[in-house]
Write a protein that binds this DNA or RNA. Structure first.
Lengths: 163, 163
DNA sequence: TTAGCATCATTGACACGTCAACCGGTAGGT
DNA sequence: ACCTACCGGTTGACGTGTCAATGATGCTAA
């Protein structure tokens, strides 16, 4: 297939004008979609999508608590990012941090009642926004295609410099 | 079609588990793709994608200069965002700002030679990265599908609260 | 024992975005 | 002429993200 379409996978270095146009549409639209979701969530609940990820993970954790590093890897964040974010969330009373009693060097992050409350209030409008802005915008076939595209892009991202 | 698939477009409020999984894959992967491009560009040229957009627009403008508001609408940024960004770019010597001689209240943004230089150096690696991380990660059919998905999502974003 | 050494987490500096307030100038209506 | 309203642009405050440096703690090998 790569042989049968000369120039497609071959020595060409740069995207064509069409590919570039699609690239720009794609990356800008997905970014705009993210921002829209962000501001919807903000308006509906005064939470950011970062807050939401953290609260979701803690809500599902047993005891409504997780080790910081565990939380970081669970939601795929760098520890530094999480630490900054937890600081801001702690100031707003959404979570608490305490030295883990069991593990010596481990910081436990725990959901406060205010945090659990905020998460419960945010869930429904957030999911509704996802449905309106993503699910309902696409045909069922396009949703499947979007999943496959994400998988293909992710695979490429995971092998940073292969070839 | 919407009638033939009961429940699909009907009274349901929330995404299904499958839709939600695809949503997360999709939004997280596209965000990660953006970050990867950003850091590739940063490493190759010490420019951000924001810098790149500004420099691209100025490079293509006649006289390598544009009015600030014109530039903002050309690349789709808020005025405030552009103003902050131009301040940072000016500090690095990539652009200059001056009162427009012709239009009284208009600020002209002009490309410096350093800015033009930086842009020229960034173009090739940036386009190559787009090809590696996006174009080459997808089949030709998937690229077309990505374009259609972007168009559909954009259409929904442009009518914020329609229905 | 102690000298590294990796790991967990935090911190500071900085770039980036958004929001709301502000400023100066121009245009319109009275 | 004067008041007002808008328009182009800037600024400040703040939340957010990355990177590099730092503490603090446990592990391992001399």
């Amino acid at each position: 297939m790569t042989e049968a379409t000369p120039g497609r996978r071959g020595g060409r270095q740069l995207p064509t004008a069409d590919e570039l146009r699609i690239w720009r549409d794609f990356i800008e639209t997905t970014a705009a979609l993210g921002s829209r979701l962000e501001s919807r969530l903000q308006g509906d609940s005064s939470l950011s999508t970062g807050d939401y990820s953290v609260l979701l993970a803690l809500s599902e954790a047993e005891g409504q608590a997780m080790r910081s590093s565990e939380l970081a890897s669970h939601i795929g964040w760098e520890r530094s990012r999480l630490s900054h974010h937890l600081g801001r969330m702690e100031r707003r009373g959404l979570i608490r941090r305490q030295e883990s009693a069991t593990v010596p060097r481990g910081a436990e992050v725990l959901l406060t009642t205010a945090g659990a409350e905020a998460f419960r209030g945010a869930t429904f409008p957030h999911l509704r926004a996802i449905r309106e802005l993503f699910v309902d915008a696409l045909t069922p076939e396009q949703i499947v295609a979007a999943g496959e595209i994400a998988t293909a892009l992710r695979a490429r991202l995971d092998v940073p410099r292969a070839q």
